[in-house]
Design a binder for these strands. Structure first.
Lengths: 110, 110
DNA sequence: CATTTACCGAAGTGACCACTTCAGTATTGC
DNA sequence: GCAATACTGAAGTGGTCACTTCGGTAAATG
């Protein structure tokens, strides 16, 4: 029902916002409550909750409510989409950039 | 002088758009002219040029004009920003995700 | 030289985004 | 019970985004 499609667009879009990247970086260390995440950020609690929703929909985070506190954690799904996209392109990049490197070395040394 | 700031926000934002990701994927294979990039996309040439500008500003592509043709290529700068961000967080993710085996099993879908 | 090709620039548009405020609901602690 | 806490939902706002059209410039081509 609330399971949105997790794809590269969602993940990249979610990480395009510095506030959301900050949240992900915090969650990399340990779980946080919504207000715990909000504390160092100069925005409203509601805004943080909205960011969290984006992160959840992109598969980068998930959360569950116990009592009145919602505990937020990192989620592997979004991260793996991100890493997969990069991995899928990496060999092509390397091949291409090797040729670029050759061209650079030819025209100008570093 | 016209060196714009290449940061994670720009790179993630640039890759958040499916059309721009498609362009990056094409450029992974070989250089293209602007109209060459536009051909398989159902949008105007102008729109493609605008996408290209975003990719250039985020450090993911660069281009140069020879005669009337602008040749576009992948650029390493944006890619390295992206990979660096992921690498910087990866160890934390792994440590965290080790403790979250349950969450993984819970959200296993492709 | 005229036409076609390839791109550039400005301006407009509708949709979406980050964020706000305000008014709720549930839970916890005194 | 009452107040403080922790969120939740709806609605609004200003800004940005992807895209368009139109009009222009410059290079290749017959």
């Amino acid at each position: 029902m609330n399971r949105k499609k997790i794809d590269a667009s969602h993940v990249f879009h979610a990480l395009g916002d510095p506030t959301r990247r900050a949240i992900v970086e915090r969650l990399s260390e340990r779980p946080y409550s919504v207000s715990g995440l909000a504390t160092p950020l100069n925005i409203s609690l509601t805004a943080v909750a909205q960011h969290l929703q984006v992160l959840e929909e992109s598969g980068l985070a998930h959360s569950e409510k116990t009592g009145r506190v919602r505990t937020c954690r990192l989620n592997a799904a979004g991260l793996s989409v991100l890493e997969k996209w990069i991995r899928d392109r990496r060999s092509l990049w390397v091949r291409r950039l090797d040729r670029l490197g050759d061209a650079l070395a030819e025209s100008d040394e570093e």
